[in-house]
Lab assay of single mutants.
Amino acid sequence: KKYKIKVYVKDKKTKKWKKIKEIEVDTKEEALEAIKKLPPNYEVKIVP
């Protein structure tokens, strides 16, 4: 079972969220580790 991490950042001009990358991992633990490495201003969604 794979997890997709969708990473969004808020556009300063439009104030809208835009997706900047998608990370695919195998476990939820890996997903949480990957999220920890991202800057705090990123919004993250984990999709099972």
Rank of each mutant, 00 (worst) to 15 (best):
N41H: 15
D26K: 09
I20M: 06
K18T: 07
T27N: 07
I46N: 01
K16G: 04
K10P: 05
K16S: 05
K28A: 09
K2F: 11
K12Y: 12
I35R: 04
A34F: 15
K2D: 04
Y42Q: 08
Y8E: 00
K28E: 14
T14L: 06
V9K: 15
V44N: 03
I23C: 04
I46W: 13
I46A: 01
K2N: 12
K18G: 03
K12P: 14
E29L: 10
K36F: 04
E29G: 06
K37Q: 13
K10T: 05
K2S: 10
K21L: 10
K2H: 14
K2G: 10
T14Q: 05
K19T: 05
Y42A: 09
K4P: 00
Y3M: 07
I23Q: 04
I46T: 03
A31Y: 07
K28L: 14
E33N: 10
K12D: 11
Y8D: 00
E33K: 09
K16V: 05
N41P: 04
L38P: 01
Y42R: 13
K28H: 15
K2Q: 14
I5T: 00
W17V: 02
P40A: 11
K2M: 09
P48G: 12
K4S: 13
K15R: 11
V7M: 05
W17K: 04
T14P: 02
W17T: 02
K36D: 06
W17L: 04
K2P: 08
D26T: 10
V25W: 04
V9G: 06
Y8A: 00
I35M: 08
E43Q: 15
K15N: 13
K13I: 14
A31K: 01
K36I: 06
V44D: 00
V9C: 01
K45W: 08
K36H: 11
I23R: 02
E22A: 02
K13A: 14
K36C: 15
P48N: 10
T27W: 02
K4V: 15
K21C: 07
V25I: 07
L32A: 13
A34L: 12
V25D: 00
K21N: 12
K37N: 10
E30K: 06
P39T: 05
P48L: 15
K2I: 08
E33F: 03
I46D: 01
K6F: 14
L32T: 09
V44E: 00
E24D: 15
P48E: 10
E29Y: 09
N41A: 10
T14H: 06
I20N: 01
L38V: 04
K36E: 09
K2Y: 10
T14A: 07
D26W: 11
P40N: 10
K45F: 06
E33G: 06
I20G: 01
D26P: 04
K37A: 08
K36S: 13
I46R: 01
I23V: 05
P48T: 15
E43C: 13
K4M: 14
K18L: 06
